[in-house]
Amino acid sequence: MSHDSTHSDEPLNWGAAFFGWIVPGLGQVSIGHARRGILAGVGILGLFLGGLLIGGVDCVDRHEDPLWFYAQAGSGPIALAADWANSALLKTGKVGELVETPSSMPRAAPMLVSSFKTVTPANEIGTLYCALAGLMNLVVIFDALKRRPLERDDSTKGHAR
């Protein structure tokens, strides 16, 4: 790793880490590394929105896929919003329609699921995109946590922003 502007004796940037969770890349921007933050944000948000485009908001579901959701939640409030959209719009039938599906349990009543729910590779790939966006944002958040703010950097000339 070539972290020229990170030092173990520097105080941790907890505020930048928080901003980085709110909006991917904002942590770096808040400590002066604007270009770095924007590039990281483009990568993270591109992955997450790509996942939603491929698989729809059904890919983010904290009730049915809690382990995946824990990874996806690393992307920040956008994951919470996608989960809300899934619960409030798809599962209630406000968007699409609810169709009867046989339950996996014998003798159980049929379930109502959204017509937008899929069990195709689209759902799996979309879930993977969103989860990897969340995990990669953790990498970006830790970078913002440890990166030396540009204002206090005594060797700024050697670092690209």
Binding site: M1, S2, H3, D4, S5, G25, Q28, R35, R36, G37, L39, A40, V42, G43, I44, G46, L47, G50, I54, I125, L128, Y129, L132, A133, M136, N137, V139, V140, D143, H159, A160, R161
Partner: peptide, 22 residues
Amino acid sequence: LLFPLVVGISIAYRATHQSDLA
């Protein structure tokens, strides 16, 4: 669809692990 996935991961990774963004 794995190719754009790899590109997205690469952008986020290189943005934090490359000392010079040139």
